[in-house]
Design a protein around this nucleic acid. Sequence first.
DNA 1: CCTCATTTGTGATACATTTCTCAATCAGCG
DNA 2: CGCTGATTGAGAAATGTATCACAAATGAGG
Lengths: 212, 212
Amino acid sequence: MPHKSASVKTIPDIVVGRLPFYLRTLRALAAEGREITSSSDLGNRLGLTSAQIRKDLSYFGEFGKQGLGYNIPFLVDQLRRILKVDRVWEVVLVGFGDLGRAIAHYHGFHDRGFEIRMVFDSDPAKIGQSLAGFTVDDMNAMVEKVRAAKVRVAMLAVPATSAQKVADLLIKGGVRAILNYAPTTLNVPKGVAVQNIDPAAHMQHMTYYLEP
Amino acid sequence: MPHKSASVKTIPDIVVGRLPFYLRTLRALAAEGREITSSSDLGNRLGLTSAQIRKDLSYFGEFGKQGLGYNIPFLVDQLRRILKVDRVWEVVLVGFGDLGRAIAHYHGFHDRGFEIRMVFDSDPAKIGQSLAGFTVDDMNAMVEKVRAAKVRVAMLAVPATSAQKVADLLIKGGVRAILNYAPTTLNVPKGVAVQNIDPAAHMQHMTYYLEP
DNA sequence: CCTCATTTGTGATACATTTCTCAATCAGCG
DNA sequence: CGCTGATTGAGAAATGTATCACAAATGAGG
Ligand SMILES: NC(=O)c1ccc[n+]([C@@H]2O[C@H](COP(=O)([O-])OP(=O)(O)OC[C@H]3O[C@@H](n4cnc5c(N)ncnc54)[C@H](O)[C@@H]3O)[C@@H](O)[C@H]2O)c1
Ligand SMILES: NC(=O)c1ccc[n+]([C@@H]2O[C@H](COP(=O)([O-])OP(=O)(O)OC[C@H]3O[C@@H](n4cnc5c(N)ncnc54)[C@H](O)[C@@H]3O)[C@@H](O)[C@H]2O)c1
């Protein structure tokens, strides 16, 4: 007897990870005024095969019309619903250094479902600095404020040496998704999602293929 | 008859992509003063199975000792050689906005094999601003200066609307590896590597798994 | 109303990656 | 100097992912 209910087929994580890129591309098409696209058009723009796009989407439903393709605004709506970005998630940012400041000032997240509403830092010189609508707050207040506001999504932009400590506190405050900019692997309990951003790792991935 | 020489077994790209994380973790261990580690120790720190780490490393040679494990400084050297970061690559950065500025001031790349040596922007207000050792230069001079300095690695931090144009120019100047921060898919010829950084995409990947 | 050119959704198939397993090896130790 | 416990490297098996290929559906055009 299987553990999972027979009706719930688990969708491969790698498929979920591609959906944001489909959504991003569809919204660019919509911004160009397009109404309709096809799996092969999308595939060309994304550098993927049309079959992969059709199969990926088919995990979630039937969104296209045979002979015609996909209605862009409709598919955008569906993907936003599937990815749960048909709302705006309140985000807590920890670390207001060079990178944290760039992230806090960046306006590109709102349109994709995220808005930074709280920023914390441990440096007294940074606490109290104000941004559009709020101020940088003391780390000591973090767990309680995050818990009170029921924030479940965080961005972590502190040095690698403090990243695990801060992650533990975020989780204590109720956070369940962490975007980690620090170049270290975070250890988190089941039920907490982590995604890592490590530009240097991407660079090293590419130099492997360069001629010396 | 196969195209590739029989002696050259191509290594899966997904394996290459994990090596930077192995290297990063090994260097953290070295910084803690450790001399020796094992595949299961590494696996625990990285959240991977020990078998995967052993198999990945075995594509490149025999680096461990049975019964003992891996010598950390030795394995660090090997990985640096394999990833070609046993040198420092000169990097060109295009786009000196909020993000570009944070990247340009970040000192964490040097230790991992990269040093930003040129910055270009198209905004006259930004051209001429100076950083440690060099100044922000005019886009119009970019192709020639990049070609003259034989720079082959770039970071792209311009708005999505100009990213493809700038990428084309970089490639014209001889760049063969591009780290793209703009939220758009770049179209590049064979022989040019692209890696994308899209924090919002990572965020959307995580919200899929959150309860509404 | 019929034909044609398209394009979807999806089983079947091919390919890629991870995990399992275990013989081989090694340092330490009595 | 041979025994013990630990650990690697790698073939085999299991699992996961991408591509193929085609029936079914659709709208356009006559
Ligand atoms: N700047 C970049 O472009 C860049 C690029 C890649 C990665 N990173 C990584 O992002 C992180 C931040 O980088 P940065 O350049 O902004 O560094 P930074 O030193 O300028 O800023 C770090 C901030 O975190 C704060 N901080 C330290 N410990 C803290 C704690 N325990 N709780 C709360 N706040 C704390 C510091 O006060 C500081 O304001 C680092 O891990 C870095 O490696 C940065
Ligand atoms: N700031 C962030 O934290 C952040 C986060 C995620 C993604 N991004 C992405 O990174 C890119 C840069 O973001 P930003 O916040 O620094 O934006 P920004 O507008 O502050 O900076 C963009 C810079 O690019 C320059 N530029 C524009 N067109 C150019 C061209 N053709 N050639 C050379 N320079 C040109 C502009 O003059 C400006 O200085 C954007 O694509 C953005 O979506 C930024």
